[in-house]
Design a protein around this nucleic acid. Structure first.
Lengths: 371, 371
DNA sequence: CGGATTTGTTTATTGGTTGAATTATTTGAG
DNA sequence: CTCAAATAATTCAACCAATAAACAAATCCG
């Protein structure tokens, strides 16, 4: 019953239709004309024209010069997302490196910088956020030289993050209750920029939404030291009631099996963690298959993406996982589960972070236009 | 990116705001006035008045006669859902009984009829749908005598159902590819009524949404011969990509355990099915706890409701399930999982079926008004 | 009884979409 | 070369729904 309890006024109509037009252009492989958008969306040509005018004026769309001519009639002016429109700053902080990139509205990575952390710096030292901010300043300056305007920044962190961007706990960084938006927002390089923070597995999952296939619903499993999963339902990340969803690493695979550091026995992590994959790929694949079967039986998800440490050894794992899926997924015969490696490698989380910024602009262009 | 790709026009604004007003009245325990709705929703008093006029004219709201007076000023006219408004017909077909009920707009069960199937009738005999239709005719006639108008009917079936209402397979009924809406719609009692079909566990889960606590996110587990689950996320049933979510009965609990009729080994169903619960409650509880831990780890769900055959023996199962949850849920210490028995008993699926009809009217009153 | 107060309605205005007419730009036929 | 046909895009009057402000209704209180 939590169905958008906000009143709707005419301006909401315009906001919705602006987003509809922008989304229509973004989702097409070609460069649709106003008339094409009209038939695709059901809006009148007059309305589409007015909306497109706003989007062009706001720098979100561009009219392409050489109109692809076909048949009789006035040639159509193709429309496309503007490569000079608002861009997103993606940041990542991890155990041994910092990274930053700028992704433009079309989804292209325009600038990218990665820096290994100096070994002398303590992991938990929050001055690393200052280093990160300086790194971000570099790519931001390069983007600015291109004429790009940054719409915001998102940081990927290996840990539990509250909706407000507070890092509740990040074991591998030694962080606890760190107010990242406040700290980063106080640096000169990022002052004034809207900053959000999210879990790296979540962001990596979202990066697959753009870079991978076109499925709007899939499970992204990232194998690192621990195993995390991002559940993408209908184009949106499912975060759970408290934001702690996706803990597939602690799904029980063998109830009386190996003890896990979490206190339970037989967790997936003990059979398909990074080390175990290297030591015994067959066991890892089987354990993964059992856990994934549970997910598919529960959520009826048709696509599973393997990322992180799983991606490079995908071919070794595939057969073993699929064997279990065929056996254990009730509806396997009606339609098989598609298994594929992640499209992006180590950059996935950072890319997903930058993508969330531009996705926000694309999903709510009215907010950007009236900023 | 599948964010409502339909254009929005002025009439959509009205449709949304009609639903907003109706929902506001429905969710309040008291009988709010137009002015109160105005402040609750953010709409102007004038707008609320216009919308309420439409809703009263359409028979969805009623103005209460004795205005509860308080303080100075013109007394407010209280508004409430109309008990004479559109009602929902809930149907259920199961192995050994048929059932039908009528629920009015306020959620009250107005009429109810249950009939045991005559032992001589073959289970798979589709003439049982005719018997069901006659039973439905009885409660529908009683409702009609009350002045109620039926807005639609929903049938609860123990099996996999497509969005179009085709029962793909219902093992316990011996059904396969049965076009229920067509068959029921052809009977004189139900002719002309919009008929939908859904899985019984899904519908039972939805009935908990109204009858149970106020949590908008929970897992409903129904133990019968098979075990099904309804996943309610944020007030809406999560159906999965193909509508086959919730197959918790075939989640693997013991990878090398008892063979299951589905072809796999160690499915939950083999340890916590109706018979097993009776034979060995401790084993059933432990197996359930293992499977539920997986769900909670994956989805970060805070509430689990036990229904069907589990509800009567809830006290016997509780401790065993909670022990596993405490051990195996990663975030158990941060906030424990709440376990409770279903609020409704055997009627849950049928009630949920009727509820979905009235919920549909309440969520989209404009469609009802302009019918 | 009359002012204060709150509820609900009326009226003019505004914002946004629609549909029809109009203008713009091309191809192709005579 | 010119004109008709075709397609794209814009202009403009009409309409619909929400808003704000004024107004009417119904009560309380001094």
């Amino acid at each position: 019953m939590t169905a958008s309890s906000a009143p709707v006024r005419q301006s909401s109509v315009r906001a919705h239709n602006l987003a509809l037009v922008l989304r229509t252009v973004a989702n097409r492989a070609d460069q649709p004309s106003r008339a094409a958008i009209s038939t695709l969306t059901g809006l009148t040509r007059a309305t589409v024209s007015a909306l497109v005018d706003d989007l062009i004026a706001g720098g979100l769309l561009v009219e392409l010069d050489p109109p692809p001519r076909t048949g009789a009639g006035r040639p159509a002016a193709g429309l496309a997302l503007s490569p000079d429109g608002p861009a997103g700053l993606g940041l990542e902080i991890n155990v041994d490196y910092l990274a930053a990139c700028v992704v433009d509205l079309t989804g292209t990575v325009r600038h990218r910088a990665v820096r290994a952390t100096h070994p002398s710096v303590a992991l938990s030292d929050l001055s690393r956020l200052g280093d990160l901010s300086r790194l971000a300043g570099e790519v931001a300056a390069a983007a600015s030289a291109d004429g790009l305007t940054l719409a915001g920044a998102t940081l990927a962190v290996p840990g539990l993050v509250t909706p407000a961007g507070i890092v509740r706990v990040a074991p591998n960084l030694g962080w606890q209750d760190v107010d990242v938006p406040a700290l980063l927002g106080a640096t000169p390089e990022l002052a004034g920029l809207p900053i959000s923070v999210d879990n790296e597995a979540n962001l990596a999952a979202l990066s697959e939404l753009r870079a991978g296939g076109d499925e709007p619903t899939f499970l992204y499993v990232s194998g690192e030291i621990g195993i995390g999963a991002g559940i993408v339902l209908d184009g949106a990340l499912y975060r759970g009631v408290r934001g702690w969803s996706g803990e597939i690493g602690h799904v029980t695979v063998y109830p009386d099996g190996r003890p896990c550091r979490c206190g339970a026995d037989g967790c997936l992590e003990q059979y398909a963690g990074q080390e175990q994959v290297a030591a015994d790929p067959a066991l890892a694949a089987s354990a993964l298959g059992i856990a994934l079967s549970a997910v598919v039986n529960l959520l009826d998800i048709g696509v599973v993406v393997l990322g992180g440490a799983y991606a490079p050894v995908f071919d070794q794992l595939r057969e073993g996982i699929e064997t279990e899926l065929r056996r254990r997924v009730l509806t396997a015969e009606l339609s098989p589960v598609l298994l594929r490696p992640a499209a992006l490698g180590a950059d996935a989380a950072m890319r997903g972070a930058a993508d969330t910024v531009v996705r926000e602009v694309r999903e709510n262009p009215a907010a950007w236009l009236s900023r």
